[in-house]
Structure formats: structure tokens, C-alpha cells
Simulated assay, not measured.
Amino acid sequence: MKIRIEIVAVDCLMVRLFDSIDEAHMPWLLAASRRLHECFGQRLIDLVPSYTTLMVHYDLQQLQASEARQLIAQALDDLQPDTRGSGRTHSLPTWYDPRVGPELKLLADRSGLSINQVIERHSGHEYQVFALGFVPGFAFMGLVDEILASPRLNTPRKRVAAGSVGIAERQTAAYPQVSPGGWNLIGRTPVRLFDHALEGYSLLHPGDRVRFEAVSHVEFIRLGGDDTPLEAQP
């Protein structure tokens, strides 16, 4: 691992730890995040972790750029991976059905699997939350089974229902709110992923682990799910 510091803005630096996405990198990123928080303290405005980087936004009134670089070097000296495991584990009940997951059959046809096998492959793995972005509460997770990897849609939808579960390349996610989107949709969860009552407003955070639990239509409705087909939503 070769740590590099890149300029993002006059008060923002990007700390790059890796060049490729790998679940094994998360303990290092979590350890770096903790150390940076401790070293910067009140001088830190925001720290945004991603797949391979951490963006450090610091208070320019309290730190010069050279001082910020020194703090980063100090924080990451002799860095060791965080083996304690910091994230929470979540189970997201998910109704897999073409009515709310119009690409479910497409993924089955493309992979040579049956629809049930696609569901088993997707729900049978525990995913790492790598980063939040795109819209508030949208958690990028991975890595999905290679046989399920699918490119984003050529033309994104103008409206994707909240709770929609999708796949893009080897990533998976659940839309926290109604928004445009180009991921391959395979189901829907009734779980509220973004809410002002939640800590940090988002249910999911980098370092968390997520498993999608396949549930019946009856159970989905019992849990408060909206089964309105995607094409019928206003």
C-alpha cells in the first residue's frame, strides 16, 4: 500500500490508499478514518470515506495546507488494519419480483441462471458498505457474484421507487428515496434507509455489512412495503 495525498480544493485533500476495489481494503480505510478523526479533532469539517480513498475537508481558518498534510502523515504513520470490526450488520427483507424488479429476468437470461438462482446468489452473500453517495443514504455495496455483474442501463430511468434493490457492475444497492437511476432493478425492500430520525440520517454507513433476505409478497406487505409496479408509479 502506497499512501498518496491529492489536492481536491483549497481546504480539501484526498488520501488515496488503494487503486482497486476490494472488500479486504475496508479494515485499512476504517483504521485510517479513526486516526484522521483523532488527529484533526475540531479542525476537521468532514471526512468522506470511499472505496479506496478518504476525502479530508479541514478548517482553513485553523490549518494551513502544509499543516494538514503533516497531520495526515502523522495520523497514518505505521497504519495497521482495524481488526475489531466497527460496522453494524443489517438484514434487509427484500421482495424479489419482476413487478418491482424489471431486470430480474434479464439478469437470469444473461447469466444462464433461473430467476430463483439469481435470487439465491444475490441474497446468499453478505455485502460490505463501501461508500455513501449519489443521493443521501444511497449505500454502494459489494461485491456481488461475478455471474450477476451487469452494466448500468443505457438510458437511466427518470423515476425509481424508494426501496428498489439493484445491481450495477459488481455493486449492489437499495434506493433510499424516489430518484432517477440506471441500475438493474431486481426487487424492493420496505426498510426505510434515509430518515431524519436515524443517526446521521442514514441507516447504512461505510464499514457496515448487509444481507438481503428474500421474503414473500405477503411478508413484504406486512412490513409496510409498497408493491406498486414500477411502470404504474406516478
Rank of each mutant, 00 (worst) to 15 (best):
L44C: 09
L54M: 02
G41Y: 07
A9V: 05
D22W: 06
R69H: 08
L47E: 06
L17T: 00
S50E: 02
D59P: 04
Y51Q: 01
M26Y: 00
R43C: 08
C39V: 15
F18T: 05
D19T: 12
H25I: 02
C12A: 14
M14I: 06
I21M: 13
R16E: 15
E23W: 01
D11S: 15
L30D: 02
A9H: 12
I72L: 08
Q61I: 09
L71H: 07
S20K: 10
L47V: 05
C12T: 14
R16W: 03
P49Y: 01
T53C: 06
L63H: 08
C12N: 11
A24K: 13
L29W: 01
Y58M: 06
L47W: 02
A32F: 01
I45M: 11
C39E: 15
D22A: 15
L44T: 05
E67A: 15
L17M: 14
H57M: 11
P49L: 03
A9N: 14
H37P: 01
L36C: 04
L60R: 11
Q62G: 15
S20Y: 11
T52M: 05
C12I: 01
Y58G: 02
V56L: 00
A24P: 01
Q74C: 09
L54W: 00
G41S: 05
H57L: 09
V10K: 13
L17V: 03
I72V: 11
A24R: 14
L30P: 00
Y58Q: 03
A65Y: 10
A68Y: 03
V56M: 03
D11E: 15
G41F: 07
D19C: 05
L63F: 08
V8D: 11
A24G: 10
T52I: 06
F18R: 05
Q61F: 13
Q61R: 13
D22H: 13
M14Y: 06
